[in-house]
Nucleic acid binder design. Structure first.
Lengths: 202, 202
DNA sequence: ATAGTTAATGACCGCTTGGTCAGCAAGCTC
DNA sequence: GAGCTTGCTGACCAAGCGGTCATTAACTAT
């Protein structure tokens, strides 16, 4: 039938391998993930994988970085460009954002970082610079702007943007550990936003 | 000199090995932890380790369980026996509890569970039954009692005890990932308790 | 002392797995 | 279609590691 044994697709391979690797790392964690399985899942020989990625560790880092999407950037832009009142923004786009995160691949990345972060400090730094630091600053700016506009009281929340996203964090961990136990993430976020507003509204 | 090559100390060995294992697991995670290193750190041969623990996995489970101390039970009892007003209890013992947890070995256990939980569902179940479930119920009961006494308004918080401990969770994750970056855990908890009270006080 | 019991040792084994490389063949050029 | 480049394969290797067991020696009873 002259079915060729393989095709040469230099352009697509790295992404395909990276996608497969994400699945395997997500399912097994770093140490228990087998390079052979990644290759198999990508429909590729192990040799080829090592042509595109020098080591298993480099593959891991590439995968993590590739998932750090522009999700956070979207929020940053929304904060700066919104014409909503601060309260309406919190009840709308911000709330929606917080509800979405725990369902997204970000949760998987968090798990991998928690598990393997100690051994890959540069990965943690990367995540800090590109996600955490940016996100927290955006929240701080948002709160500050609310105060300047007279919509919010002056509270410690400005220096503690972590407090705003704490339930998001909890929800992510919950899903990682207790997938089968119930947690009404949406209600959690709704109530949390209500609570913050009750505390800071001018 | 007749210095004996070793002593027989049947009673103490398991705990010594378990302690050493905790250190190694904490530092390396499950998969990267070496049984040889645990034995070495416990000042014991690998063979002896396998006399007291059948497999590496059983050792891991024993370690996790041994750290699930009565910390939570202490809180439960405090809730039931306190003579403080609900508000005073939140500002006092509860707040203190939330501040302490992130600094305790519980944080390490959480990390190990997040990393390895998927592969050891019975461990997760154990942790759920002995820590999470109990703790959340205690918080729910506490909130409910506050409502009955007329100290608190009736809010969704009763069904969302997770919201109370969310910053504790975040603080733990923060310490695990971003040890060197600053986070004023105490201020975070203070503000959070203030916020909750502002929301639920009758 | 002596014999018996068992806590403790550490050399050893087999398997797993990350990583290599000599060779093969897809596809391009002329 | 001959020849060349290079994407791709998969058998192979060395190291590391969990787990075993024959042997040793610390302790006990008599």
């Amino acid at each position: 039938m002259a079915q060729p044994r393989f095709q040469r697709r230099k352009e697509d391979r790295p992404q395909e391998i990276s996608d497969a690797a994400f699945e395997v790392f997500a399912a097994k964690g770093y140490a228990a993930a087998r390079v052979d399985e990644v290759a198999k899942r990508a429909g590729v020989s192990k040799g080829l994988l090592y042509l595109y990625f020098k080591t298993k560790e480099e593959l891991f880092k590439a995968v993590i970085k590739s998932v750090v999407t522009r999700r956070v950037d979207a929020l940053l832009i929304a904060v700066d460009e919104t014409e909503l009142s601060s309260e309406a923004f919190m009840r709308g786009p911000l709330l929606e954002f917080m509800k979405q995160i725990p369902r997204s691949p970000v949760a998987v990345v968090i798990r991998l970082l928690i598990a393997e972060g100690q051994r890959h400090p540069d990965l943690v730094d990367y995540y800090w610079d590109n996600v955490v630091s940016k996100g927290l600053k955006a929240i701080s700016r948002f709160v500050e702007r609310g105060i300047e506009r007279g919509e919010f009281r002056k509270t410690a929340l400005k220096e503690l943007p972590q407090l705003v996203v704490a339930p998001t964090m909890l929800s992510m961990i919950w899903r990682i550990l207790f997938t089968q136990r119930e947690l009404d993430t949406d209600k959690l976020m709704d109530t949390h936003i209500e609570m913050i507003l009750a505390y800071i509204k001018a």
